[in-house]
Design a protein around this nucleic acid. Structure first.
Length: 517
RNA sequence: GGGUUCCUAGCUCAAUUGGCAGAGCAGCGGCCUUUUAAGCCGCGGGUUCUGGGUUCGAGUCCCAGGGAACUCACCA
């Protein structure tokens, strides 16, 4: 071939299979065939062609279908092939004598590779063995593939390869494509539900001068022109409540949050969240709405209210179980945290019972850790834990009858927290006091504590009605609906470390290329 | 960040006690006009993740590094 433009296409770096495909590309050009034409002739998607034959049978007119060649079976002067587009697959039948000129012998058999994109024109017909096929009269070349396809039967198994090169995963492993169709259906159903209930979909800043709304460390970025550090949002909460103060009674946002924390089977540094805020609703009303909304999604996505996750049947039928957090921890550990009203006493009791509490934890964090460790993993069926300690809930309104508690719940399924909600603080003085408490914690080493957001207090000072707020992880909800046990399966491009040695060398070399500015 | 396990051909996987690196698919050449992971005959294909070390000999054992999975801690 001619001089390579980049090491990627240097023959010295190609495998024999890549070199063979590159040679076929050149031969196609030499034969006068454009390997990457701008337009494809298509009269029907493959699904539409199947539907057409279903209706019209052998009387159906000729169709032109397009797609990727997934399997090729050459039987001599006749071949079968499986063509796949985004709607499905169909068999092609090619006969040497039914195709123009020497196309069959010299183009089809020699220059077209597995994985190439082609268009096929011909009559629909059922073969002897009952397979609906296109009897190809003419074939249009649509796109050359320079890499060999993964194993046609096993696909790609290596998880690292699947996540780093998701396109290979998707093209080689059809069930993976279904996961992201389901994910899209879930998001669509959530919007349908909320829109139908009079919620306004809004978009609030991702780049924020202050962060807040959750206990998490943020990513920090910088605006050059303004000489200003900015945070990538860790939640939408404080902006959405400003909108409630502004007069919208029901708002929601579906978007990306960024948290500078560890990664795990249920944590990705960026993840998709739904938050909604509803004026004149308290946390009991939000619980009812949560059940209704998730049930609606299930109905739309699966057609029912039960689903199977890792061999267990999950029943989403409302109402879900409601258990006070205090009771749930008492049942799971024998510890009634109300009897140990400060961090020292609670930590001592935990140690006495063989637990190993983090000595730096506040009382609320100890309670939360008991929940996360001994309660959460066992909450398989949809369950609300209700009434949380005040000092882990700096934005939740206090319970009228217990100053140590707030009107908050978290929803759990399959042993994972999926949502978090509360009656929102709308007393600006109360909220400011909570922020001050948080900033005290921040100064004493809690790097997840809230900074004081004075503009938010300002907004509350103009008046916000009693409001219920809600947040739900869309990734985790998708895990439950797609029967997957790691968040990476439901994120198209999950975060992975960059590969160092070779990748860096390649990057260095590519900088030698002329990049005229 | 800690612990455990893994990384072999384009893909999926083998390789006994440390003893000639293999198979299927894919590729290349050939046969084949009803296949469904087509079949048959033949051929080529390896930095065994990287770098050291032990050894007559290392895919295998040791050390360091890279990446991944699981798990613990923290988070949603």
């Amino acid at each position: 071939m001619s001089t390579p433009i980049h090491p990627m296409f240097d023959p010295a770096n190609l495998t024999d299979q890549e070199a063979a495909r590159l040679k076929n590309l050149e031969s196609l050009i030499a034969a006068g065939i454009e390997p990457y034409p701008a337009r494809a002739r298509r009269t029907h998607t493959i699904a539409a062609a199947r539907a057409l034959y279903q209706e019209a049978g052998d009387a159906a007119p000729e169709v032109s279908v397009t797609g990727r060649l997934r399997r090729i079976r050459i039987m001599g002067k006749m071949s079968f092939a499986d063509l796949e587009d985004g709607t499905g697959a169909i068999q092609l039948v090619l006969r040497r004598d039914s195709l123009p000129g020497d196309f069959y012998d010299n183009i089809w058999k020699r220059l077209i590779d597995l994985g190439d994109f082609v268009g096929a024109t011909g009559k629909l017909a059922v073969t002897k063995t009952g397979e609906l096929s296109v009897e190809v009269r003419e074939m249009q070349f649509l796109a050359k593939t320079l890499k060999p396809m993964p194993d046609k039967w096993h696909g790609v198994r290596d998880q690292e390869k699947r996540y780093r090169r998701r396109y290979v995963d998707l093209l080689a492993n059809p069930p993976v494509r279904d996961i992201f169709r389901t994910r899209a259906a879930i998001v669509r159903a959530l919007r349908e539900y909320l829109d139908g209930e009079g919620f306004l979909e809004v978009e609030t800043p991702i780049l924020q001068p202050l962060y807040g709304g959750a206990a998490a460390r943020p990513f920090i970025t910088h605006h050059n022109q303004l000489h200003q550090d900015l945070y990538l949002r860790i939640s939408f909460e404080l902006y959405l409540k400003r909108l409630i103060a502004g007069g919208y009674d029901r708002v929601y946002e579906i978007g990306r949050d960024f948290r500078n924390e560890g990664v795990s089977f249920k944590h990705n540094p960026e993840f998709t969240q739904l938050e909604f805020y509803e004026a004149y609703a308290d946390y009991h009303a939000i619980m009812r709405r949560t059940e209704e909304m998730v049930a609606y999604v299930a109905q739309q996505v699966t057609g029912g209210l039960t689903l199977t996750w890792q061999g267990r049947t999950i029943d989403l039928t409302p109402p879900w179980r409601r258990i006070p957090l205090r009771q749930a921890i008492l049942d799971a550990t024998g510890i009634d945290y109300e009897s140990y009203p400060d961090a020292e006493a609670l930590a001592a009791e935990m140690r006495r019972r063989g637990h190993e509490p983090d000595p730096r934890s506040t009382w609320g964090k100890l309670v939360d850790s008991l929940m996360a460790k001994y309660v959460e993993p066992n909450l398989i069926q949809p369950t609300f834990l209700i009434d949380y300690p005040r000092d882990v809930s700096p934005l939740a309104k206090g319970s009228p009858d217990d100053p140590r508690q707030v009107e908050r719940f978290e929803g759990f399924m399959v042993g994972m927290e999926v949502c978090n909600a509360f009656s929102e603080i709308n007393d600006p003085i109360d909220q400011l006091q909570r922020f001050i408490d948080e900033s005290y914690r921040a100064r004493h080493g809690d790097d997840e504590a809230h900074p004081i957001d004075e503009d938010y207090i300002e907004a509350l000072s103009y008046g916000m009605p009693p409001t219920g707020g809600f947040g739900m992880g869309i990734d985790r909800l998708t895990m439950i609906f797609t029967n997957t046990d790691t968040i990476r399966e439901v994120i198209l491009f999950p975060h992975l470390r960059t590969v160092k040695d070779e990748a860096e060398n390649d990057a260095d070399e590519s900088e030698d290329a002329p990049a005229a500015q």
